[in-house]
Computed example of a mutant assay.
Amino acid sequence: MKDTKGEETSAAPTPRLARVHRREQILATATPIFAQAGLAGTSLDDIATAAGVSRMILYRHFASKDDLYQAALKRAAGHLAQAVGDEVTEDTVQELVGWASADPDAFRLLFHQAAREPRFRSDIDKLREDMAQAVFRSLAETIDDRIWAKWAAQLSLTVTVEAIMTWLDIGRPQPARAATRIGRAVRAVLQSAQDD
């Protein structure tokens, strides 16, 4: 690209975006970087370069790298909540697989990378506990023994998350059938918690 004097320039200036749009652009850029490299393996320069903004612009939106990471987690959790809702139904596995397929970096950030970050582990543990509680409320109607219902709730969540993570890692084969297969594994957990 040439400037007004006909001299080569390195790149077009980053267009001005409204504050909310710039913040979203930065978070959308940061999520896959954090999901792949983790907090320690990512610098603000990495994110600024990928987002096409200066470090100063980053600091206008986020006080620190930790603040940016926290915001990326919150954004991913918000997208998760939009995708699956508050109640556990027969469609929940399908919705979770659909969201993970559409936004694998956010899924990996929440359920893989953030759990490895000591400063953010409690946030992810709380998210998983809230999800397990939603599953438990659903199971309490069909599994009489509360201890086994709690066991089934936590294990079915773990099976679902790990099955989706593995499915993503191996290249997302047969997306239309993935939820059905993962659902079968979850049903096996639930059946094992039923009274004999």
Rank of each mutant, 00 (worst) to 15 (best):
F107P: 04
A179V: 05
V186P: 03
L190K: 15
V88A: 03
R116N: 12
L68D: 12
E87L: 12
L109E: 11
D66G: 10
A28T: 06
F120D: 13
T31S: 08
T49A: 10
Q133Y: 11
P173L: 00
S64Y: 08
R146W: 06
A176G: 15
L27T: 06
A185G: 04
Q194Y: 15
D195E: 15
R55H: 13
R116M: 14
A185V: 02
D86S: 12
A178V: 03
H61F: 05
A77K: 00
S192V: 04
R22M: 08
L96K: 00
K65A: 04
Y69I: 04
D195R: 15
D3T: 02
R146A: 15
E87H: 14
G183Q: 05
H61D: 05
A178P: 00
D46E: 06
T160E: 03
W151E: 00
T166W: 11
P15I: 11
D86K: 11
A40K: 14
T42G: 10
D169M: 15
S101V: 02
A176V: 09
A179P: 06
A11I: 05
F111C: 12
Q154T: 07
A179N: 05
Q70A: 13
R181D: 10
A152L: 11
Q194T: 14
E24S: 09
A35S: 11
D91K: 13
E141K: 14
I164H: 05
D196T: 10
K126L: 13
T31H: 01
G171D: 14
F136T: 01
A102L: 03
L80Y: 07
P13N: 04
E7G: 00
Q36L: 10
A102N: 01
I57C: 09
P104D: 03
L58H: 06
P173F: 04
Q82Y: 06
R137D: 03
F120H: 15
V53I: 05
D67M: 03
